[in-house]
Structure formats: C-alpha cells, structure tokens
Design a protein around this nucleic acid. Structure first.
Lengths: 209, 209
DNA sequence: CAAGATATCTTTACGGCGTCCAGATTGAGA
DNA sequence: TCTCAATCTGGACGCCGTAAAGATATCTTG
C-alpha cells in the first residue's frame, strides 16, 4: 500500500475511484442539478463502466450519502466561520442563521440532496446533531452566550430546535419567486434574511433590551 | 356534450380517466411512498395502458402537479378550519401553525410532492400565495387581528413570511428521530409543536402583554 | 340515421435507468 | 514467481418515461 494517501483514501486499481466518484457526482450536481445525478452518469463522468461504483458503494443511495456527508461538512465549516467572526453572541446568532441560509442558496442542489437523504432515513447526520461540537451544539452554546438559561435544558433545546427549524424553513422558501419583491424592498437577499430572522425569536428575549 | 358534469370533469371513453389517475396516484402515494409514484404504476393502478395518461397530462410532471394541487387544497381547508375555530386572534396564529405542521406530518408523502413540484418551478401555487383569500392572506389577516400594524405593509409581509417559513421548517424537521425525546418531554407531538412556536416570534409583540 | 371527424385508448418500440453476474485484469503478499 | 483477492468490464434483466401508429368508441354534422 502506498503511503502518500490520507486515511480514507484507497489507492487501488483506478487510483482512488471512490474519491473520483464523489467528486464526479458533486460536479454533475452543480452543473446539471439533482435530476441528472444518475449512477450511470456519475460513472460516465468518472470514466468507468456503469457497474464499477458497486465496488465502492452498496447502491446509488450510498453514493448520495457520501455526497451529502461532504455537504454537511461544508455547511458545518460555514457555520463555524460565521460564529468565529461574529463580534457578539447576539450577532453570532444572526450570522449563523444568515450563513446557513446563504449556504443553502448557493448550493441548492447539494442542500436538497442533503435533506432528501436525511429525510429518507428520518435521521440527521452526526455532524449536525450528534457530535460534541456539532452545528446543533454551536447554536445551543451561542444561545447560552447570548443570555439563555443554561440550566433549563428543555427550554434551551427547544430554543435551539426552533432556531434551526426557522433557518431551514427560510432556506427552502427563499427560492420562490413570490418573495423577490420582498428581497428587493429589503435591499438585497441577505438583508431580507436578516429581516426575516428579526421576526423570528431566535435570540433570547432580554427584557431589559 | 353532456351537461351533468362539472367544468373540469370529462365523461369520455373511460368515464373520467383524469380523475381516476389522480386518485390512483394519491392512493399509491399514501400506500407506497413518493418513490413508488411512477407513471406506469399509476396507469396500472387505474387499469389502463402505460400510454393512456398522456391524453390527459402532458407528462409525468403535470400529473404530479395535479396531485399537488389537490394537496394544497386540502392544506388550505385545514388552515381555514383552524382559523375559524380559534377563540382569539392569538390562538388563531398558534392553531394555524399547528394545523400546518399536523397536515405535513399526517400526509408526509403528499407534502413532499407538493413542495418538490413547487421548488422545481420556483413558484408557489396561487392557492397559497396568489389568490385573494389564499393561505398567505389568512395568516396576514390573522396577524393584523392579533395587533400587527396593518399600515406597515413591508413589516407585515415580512412577519407573514417569517411565520410561514417557521411552520414549514418545523414541518420538515418534525420527522427526524433526533427530536423524539423533545416530543416526549413536551408531552406529545402537538405540545412539542406549540412549544417550538412559542420560541418563534409568530404573534406580534404586545409590549403591554 | 349515416358518415366522417375527433378524442380516447392500446400496442409496440426506443433509450436510459439501477442492479446483478460472469469473466477479465491488475495489484499485493507468500 | 505464483496465488489470491480486489477491482473493473461487458452484457443482461426488468423497470422507467415517452413517442408514434393503429384500433376503437364517441361526438358532430348533414
């Protein structure tokens, strides 16, 4: 075995077909949209026969899982960046929401694959909800920093979930034509996002605000 | 032409194949899920040849559109009922949200078809957003009744949109296993929905509340 | 009521899809 | 070097969406 590869890479026959297939799928997804993402097209794009992928993925679903996994990683990185760059916890909450929706708007096909695979299994990936420093925990911790009661765990989890649902809802709605005039009236799409978030009670209510 | 049929009905060869196809599709959708909804399967279910549907729908997408259309009608009816039965405007806002999410949870496959077709065309149906008494207007009017400033149209539209996004986000998230323990802690799924909505600023902030 | 026009439905066919299987090829370890 | 297992190819199967041509029943018109 060669030593120049990272842990998950597999330098076999083709070099690393698994990697090549995921990249080809991402490329196709970006270029042609989700409906063009057939196993055969991915194999074609990677330059192998239609049956080759079956040596690296159980079926088409498992390939989509891998694509989605990379998507969640990207989303998590975008959220981490948004949180790190925020000057205050309150700003961090807003920026997290904006970063989330912007990611979905900039990668609509990928975002769709991510949630489609998750809904099929009724299970969010660990990157978003399970791990110690998952995106969910990022939001929850930011809420605490912004003044939420860290001891009322139920209320805290509900607030985190509410924020998440709101962001996802906006992310899916933002693509509809019907809201174009609102984006314009707000002075741009991001300003629209901020306005919407202002109407959703994401940040804990400081009664002395 | 006979006169005993309603405007859209077509009593031809089969009787009313268009109607039968939509019903067959709905039946399949409910029984087998969205992935089983092939044109051929629908034709099989309706007892006709695979090519027969093409005399009533341009392509598969148009059949799904018709199925989705019926779904939006059902959703609209559920929202109208929720609004009518609410004792106060504030309660109406909450009940609208709960009714929306309950509909999505009770008809997950249909709800998915509804939004998939809408997203493909980046356009919400008139039933929800365009018509004079669309669901959007129902929510907006309820917000006014609950104390929102009817003259600040931009803010009002933003509030309505925010409420809608929140409900849709929750509707899609509610299916994930990760939130099962929250539903339990809240004392049931509907109580969970209400708790989440409480964390989202749906109702206008009465400073003298 | 007869006859042509028209809408409906079936048959057949094509290419693309996901997937499986048998065989060829190639790299790894004894 | 030889063997073996992993990797890849070629071909096949049944399903899919869709189109074209022919059969059939209904509507319209005279």
């Amino acid at each position: 075995m060669r030593e120049s590869q990272t842990a998950e890479a597999r330098p076999y026959h083709h070099g690393d077909l698994r990697r090549a297939l995921i990249d080809a799928a991402s490329r196709l997804l970006e270029a042609e949209g989700p409906s063009a993402l057939s196993l055969r097209a991915v194999a074609r794009e990677a330059g192998v026969s239609p049956a080759a992928p079956y040596h690296h993925f159980k079926d088409k679903g498992e390939l989509l899982d891998a694509v989605a996994h990379e998507g969640w990683d990207l989303l998590d990185a975008a959220l981490a960046k948004a949180k790190k760059e925020a000057p205050s916890p309150e700003a961090a909450m807003n920026n997290l929401g904006v970063a989330y929706v912007c990611f979905a708007r900039e990668n609509p096909a990928l975002y769709r694959v991510m949630y489609d695979t998750a809904r099929d299994r009724e299970d969010l990936p660990d990157q978003m909800q399970g791990d110690k420093d998952s995106a969910y925990c990022k939001v929850r911790d930011t809420l605490i920093e912004a003044g939420a009661d860290a001891d009322d765990t139920l209320d805290l989890e509900l607030a985190t979930t509410a924020a998440w649902c709101s962001a996802h809802g906006l992310a899916e709605m933002a693509g509809f034509k019907q809201f174009d005039h609102l984006k314009e009236a707000c002075g741009g799409e991001i300003a629209f996002f901020r306005s919407i978030f202002r109407h959703m009670g994401l940040v804990p209510h400081h009664h002395a605000d």
